[in-house]
């Protein structure tokens, strides 16, 4: 099934665009979909995943305007949209 990602922060430049689509097995969780994105997009992999392949806690995941926990167990539906945000600061 298809999961659409909207990317914010440094992830955009790293992925080469504002959005990214991944094809994942039916019934995956948001975290699994994020891991699939990181695996298929070399530019964002180290920003999203730590050394053991877990999603870094600094990466914010949103679905339908709500922040998701990294241990959210709800299965995604095909065509759903997740927003990923990497930390940004001032200056």
């Amino acid at each position: 099934m298809i999961v659409n990602f909207q990317l914010w922060g440094q992830l955009r430049q790293a992925a080469g665009g504002t959005s990214y689509v991944v094809d994942v097995p039916d019934g995956v969780t948001a975290t699994e979909a994020v891991q699939a994105l990181a695996s298929s997009c070399e530019g964002v992999r180290s920003m999203i995943l730590d050394d053991d392949g877990s999603v870094r806690p600094v990466i914010l995941i949103f679905r339908e305007g709500r922040q998701l926990e990294t241990d959210d167990t709800e299965s995604l539906l095909t065509g759903c949209e997740l927003t990923l945000m990497s930390p940004i600061a001032g200056g």
Binding site: Q10, S46, M47, R56, P57, V58, L60, S86, P87, I88, A89, G91
Partner: peptide
Amino acid sequence: LHPEEPPSWKR
């Protein structure tokens, strides 16, 4: 939101 310093962030 950000429990640790993000490794990819630059000054």
